[in-house]
Design a protein around this nucleic acid. Structure first.
Lengths: 339, 339
DNA sequence: CAACGTTGTTTCAACGTTGTAAACGGCTCT
DNA sequence: AGAGCCGTTTACAACGTTGAAACAACGTTG
């Protein structure tokens, strides 16, 4: 293997524990031995063996981030921030992809014990609050994203209802009267879709407009494109659509433009997530921008608290901020490159 | 902690090693004790402690994947496949982001020793072949992507020169005469840019056309947009542009459209990477599609070989396949949703 | 000057696992 | 009956680390 404390100790002519003390910055080491040990350390290029340290201390320095799919831009961007935030605690992040399937989510929740990760940040899609509550494993857990509220674990998300209401209000303020919601989901019990739908409904109701909704199975471009096609084929198509995320919106935009209609003149479009694609599409995409950096940081910090603190602290609910990014897909005001 | 072999052994009334043998499927265990032990195992819900196992065996079951940035869609999509391929070997993947900076790349190369990952898949941007060759650490290493050829480590990539030539030929076959290359980089020594530039030049020269190039610092949408703006401002702007990756192309597309020109009628655009965004942009983006699944699988398999085999095997160079995805941004043939 | 505290260093054991070697019992073969 | 073999099981040590406790040397205090 590599260089161990023992090798260094032999070279420096001290005990293994003294080397360990130097490595860990223990206070009571005489300057003389300290320099002696440090010289030996650098001469041999010592690196601590984390497996051994972890075995001894019961921690691995690794947390898991479980997401539906890494190649959805929102999750990729979020991952970036999570990895950054974790790095500040000197944690490594292993990424697990669940595809949003119940089987995989269970597997991940189960597997954290196997892999001795110190904590898990989970973006749940399929798993239910009751099932989470029933788990016996005491690995620290933080839920990230929109699905489960007031559940059995710490939870970080934006205020989906308010965000959805705000963006719908924006569409209505444009003067549109047939404002649709694209992204409604059928079977989800406590998921994100009902929350965003609720926000949409609040705004619609406040202005006495009629509800128009389109369902999807998953939140990707293809489903957005298909759902938009159905909306356009209806007797009286919408003149504005709030898509429940940006991927849906970009798929929808594709369909609108491919049908020969204009965005926003014929159909105004708005999304939610603020993925980078939407800043460079033509037209650029109006959207809700969650503060992803804050989401990530909060999730990591909550995990840290949970890991350090007593496990029986009641679960916390945290809301992070968001901003409306008004761009061409609703205003038509063309800028060269909008951020 | 959790349940250890010792706990199980006590309950089953056998030695620790026998339990270990059962857990590891050792052949010579009598059916009677096997069932006895298995009952105890499941009764206590035993899970092996990987830290201890790794300490003992000198392996961690974790590989690192170091990329410039996770939120570049190409890398996110690639990561997905790497994680999937690694899962087949029961490896976890920790993701490190280098931002393409020399400092971070060194840090990662250096850090693999610290974290005792079993192997590293690195997508190098800044680090040089000589520096890689000089490293003393014997952790298995596979280079993924386009930068370093015939270097000191196994390497997986597509044939960039040929891919660039093919896509440029396609632009020329459209009848375009002012075909530009967007994405040239200045200081990079053995990077991807020179290879793609070389392929572009081959095609240009074969048809007696004039070279038009635009430089960028980084491969993102913003730089693509800016570089395209420079090309358009030139005395005689191009009528076709091969962008060295899709992000550049999408940025460029934004600029072209925002300037009031049409794609592809005024300027045909092609990229390279086949990220999903390009399948839903308007117009959809013609591009070169590397076989990402094959890239990932090959990288993981090479890493496995390197880890299992003798470390002194000469480095291997592997090429994976690619396909041209001809879409609207060069042909103008509008389809409802192209894949 | 004896008891005490402080600093510096070491010894010991343990975290949970598995490779090695050896022990054990039963069997066959001379 | 003894030698040899085989299948099964075990004791032991070791992987590299660090907390707890012990120890030695020294200065301080009553």
């Amino acid at each position: 293997m590599g260089v161990s404390l023992r090798d260094v100790a032999e070279l420096a002519g001290v005990s293994v524990k003294t080397v360990s003390n130097v490595v860990n910055g223990y206070a009571h080491v005489s300057p003389a031995t300290r320099t002696k040990v440090e010289r030996a350390l650098s001469q041999l290029g010592y690196r601590p063996n984390l497996s051994a340290r972890n075995l001894r201390q019961g921690r691995t320095g690794v947390i898991a981030l479980a997401l539906p799919e890494l190649d959805a831009p929102y999750f990729a961007e979020l991952s970036r921030f999570v990895i950054q935030a974790a790095a500040e605690h000197r944690w490594l992040v292993v990424i697990e992809q669940t595809d949003g399937s119940l089987r995989r989510e269970r597997q991940v929740l189960d597997g954290v014990r196997d892999h001795r990760v110190d904590g898990l940040i989970l973006s749940p899609i399929s798993i239910g609050a009751d099932e989470l509550a029933a788990r016996t494993d005491e690995t620290a857990l933080v839920l990230l994203g929109e699905r489960i509220y007031d559940g059995p674990a710490d939870h970080v998300a934006i205020d989906n209802v308010r965000a959805a209401r705000d963006i719908t209000e924006h569409l209505i303020a444009l003067g549109r009267t047939r404002v649709a919601a694209l992204g409604v989901q059928d079977q989800s019990i406590s998921g994100t879709a009902p929350l965003r739908l609720a926000g949409y409904r609040e705004a619609i109701a406040a202005h006495g407009l009629a509800e128009i909704t389109a369902q999807v199975e998953r939140y990707n471009r293809a489903e957005g494109a298909a759902a938009m096609a159905r909306l356009l084929d209806a007797p009286s198509p919408p003149d504005a659509v709030f898509c429940f995320n940006d991927l849906l919106a970009l798929g929808a935009m594709r369909t609108v433009l491919a049908s020969g209609r204009r965005v926003p003149e014929d159909v105004a479009l708005a999304g939610l997530d603020d993925i980078e694609d939407g800043r460079y599409s033509t037209p650029t995409l109006t959207t809700v921008a969650p503060d992803k950096a804050q989401l990530a940081r909060l999730a990591v910090d909550l995990l840290k608290l949970r890991m350090d603190g007593r496990a029986d602290r009641p679960p916390q609910e945290m809301r992070t901020g968001y901003r409306l990014m008004i761009r061409e897909s609703t205003t038509g005001v063309r800028t060269r490159a909008s951020s």
